[in-house]
Simulated scan of single mutants.
Amino acid sequence: MKGDVKMIYTVTFNPSLDYIVAVENFKVGMTNRASQERLLAGGKGINVSTVLSNLGVDSVALGFTAGFTGEEIRKMAEKTGLRTEFIEVEQGFSRINMKLKSIEGTEINGIGPVISESELQKLLNRLDCLRAEDVLVLAGSIPDSIPDSIYRDIMERLKGRGINFVVDATRDLLMNVLDCHPFLIKPNNHELGEIFGVELNDRESVKPYAKQMQQRGARNVLVSMAGAGAVLLDENGEYYETAAPKGTLVNGVGAGDSMVAGFLAGWFKSGDYRTAFKMGVAAGSASAFSEFLATGEEVEKIYESLQK
């Protein structure tokens, strides 16, 4: 395959049922009625797998589910065509995240189930089956019942196997894996600035800090910047940057996950970082301009505009 990829695996440690609801004229302390509502399978890894599928790239969605909500997450994911291999957890239930669309993006995120050591071991045993040139996407938060070193533990366990790791996480979860040389990391400009104690508001200011992340071990550093565009520093030392495509922000949830998926799809199909970068920007923007995660057609339309 052009991007030297055999299969892409995504891991969502704490998936959710996302209850997305709009309430007009919300009043605190009163009974409010929804004007719109929708229930979706959520979680960063699941989002990546969904957009990959929309772009015609296969992946396997791994993670943990529990209880009646976990069963619904699995059903919803598979209904959209995803290949899932979730591990069923005995204690608790998969979380429900409420997203109040009409109140400045207010969210209430649930806790999630307790994952035992033996259940975690089942996931690790499954990951042991990955082969050279596979991609493993580790994305998002982890439940309290799992050690906060888990991303690094997984990468250390699989090191020397030729697996390409993608890490989309914040703070220590991200910093602790850099010397394991992940293939791709994708902080946004605020997360990157927080790591170094600076404000990064334009693409030029991002570049030296992307370089520092690379010097600490990351191979490719992709920085999303919402309306300010994006920057990629590839493993060959080349910078790519673009302004944000024109469009109306409809829903920022999942835009970063979509960017990861677009980058991987572009790399998978071409093996070219410029193509991967533009496909990532197109996918992230398409999801931001859409009510839900971007379709392949929406991504392709923006990708074509970036080629002009």
Rank of each mutant, 00 (worst) to 15 (best):
2 K>G: 05
3 G>A: 04
7 M>C: 08
7 M>L: 11
10 T>S: 11
11 V>M: 07
15 P>K: 10
15 P>A: 13
19 Y>M: 14
22 A>N: 12
25 N>Y: 02
29 G>P: 13
30 M>Q: 15
30 M>P: 03
39 L>T: 09
43 G>W: 01
44 K>A: 08
47 N>A: 01
55 L>D: 06
59 S>K: 07
60 V>H: 01
61 A>K: 02
62 L>V: 14
64 F>K: 09
64 F>D: 09
66 A>E: 07
67 G>E: 06
69 T>V: 12
70 G>F: 08
75 K>D: 08
77 A>V: 10
86 F>K: 05
89 V>Y: 06
91 Q>N: 13
92 G>H: 04
92 G>F: 00
94 S>I: 05
95 R>Q: 11
97 N>C: 12
98 M>N: 09
102 S>G: 09
102 S>N: 11
103 I>H: 10
104 E>V: 08
104 E>C: 01
108 I>A: 13
113 P>K: 05
114 V>Q: 06
115 I>G: 04
117 E>K: 15
120 L>S: 05
120 L>T: 01
123 L>T: 00
125 N>L: 11
125 N>F: 10
128 D>R: 06
130 L>Q: 06
131 R>Y: 00
133 E>K: 15
135 V>A: 07
138 L>Q: 10
138 L>V: 03
141 S>E: 00
144 D>I: 03
145 S>F: 02
146 I>Q: 05
150 I>E: 03
151 Y>H: 08
159 K>Y: 12
159 K>G: 09
162 G>M: 07
163 I>Y: 12
169 A>G: 08
171 R>W: 08
174 L>T: 09
177 V>D: 03
178 L>D: 02
178 L>T: 06
181 H>A: 10
183 F>Y: 13
183 F>Q: 02
188 N>S: 06
190 H>L: 13
190 H>Y: 12
191 E>R: 09
193 G>M: 07
194 E>P: 05
195 I>D: 12
199 E>Q: 15
202 D>T: 14
203 R>I: 15
203 R>V: 15
204 E>Q: 15
205 S>E: 15
207 K>I: 11
208 P>S: 04
212 Q>K: 13
214 Q>H: 04
215 Q>I: 03
216 R>M: 04
217 G>Y: 00
218 A>L: 05
222 L>M: 12
224 S>N: 09
225 M>L: 09
227 G>V: 13
230 A>M: 06
231 V>D: 05
232 L>Y: 05
234 D>F: 04
235 E>C: 15
236 N>E: 15
237 G>L: 10
239 Y>V: 14
250 V>S: 01
254 G>T: 02
259 M>T: 15
259 M>S: 14
265 A>N: 03
265 A>R: 00
267 W>T: 01
271 G>H: 00
274 R>V: 00
275 T>Q: 10
282 A>M: 05
282 A>N: 00
288 A>W: 00
289 F>A: 02
289 F>T: 02
291 E>D: 15
291 E>G: 14
294 A>G: 03
295 T>M: 01
296 G>D: 03
297 E>S: 05
297 E>G: 06
299 V>E: 02
303 Y>L: 09
303 Y>N: 02
304 E>F: 00
